[in-house]
Simulated assay, not measured.
Amino acid sequence: MIEAYRKLWPNRSGAGKISSQEELEKKIQIELDDELTHPRVRKPKAEKLKLALRRIRESELPEEDKASLSALYKKIAER
């Protein structure tokens, strides 16, 4: 799943350094919480999830990778 994430976000800072499932989940949590954006312009978690799921759906990843990544994003968003 790490490789699928890297393909989905090829230019994302730090994506190439992810080496474990735990690191991947932490990176997704940071993305969904919009932690790298200034607090006044942060988007709600639901909106960030919707955008990520759309990007996954529209990507050229294999269907199995799309399903796995989507499920992981949803699982992390529920935390």
Results as ranks from 00 to 15, higher is better:
T37R: 08
K43S: 12
E63Q: 15
A4R: 02
K45P: 02
V41M: 12
I30T: 15
S13M: 14
A52T: 13
L36R: 14
L32F: 02
A4F: 02
A15I: 07
K7A: 08
R6M: 08
L24P: 11
D33H: 04
R57H: 14
R55N: 12
K27E: 14
I2Y: 06
V41C: 10
L36P: 03
R55Q: 15
R42T: 07
E23L: 10
H38A: 13
R6Q: 15
R12A: 15
I28S: 00
D34V: 10
L49A: 04
K7D: 00
Q29G: 08
D33K: 12
S13C: 09
P10E: 04
E60S: 11
G14T: 09
K50R: 14
L69W: 00
L51I: 12
E22P: 14
R54F: 09
S59F: 04
E23A: 11
E22Q: 12
H38F: 13
G16T: 08
L61F: 04
K75C: 01
Q29L: 13
R6W: 05
S20P: 14
L69Y: 01
G14F: 10
I76C: 01
I56E: 01
A67P: 06
Q29V: 05
L51P: 02
K75R: 15
A4I: 05
Q21K: 15
E47P: 04
D33Q: 09
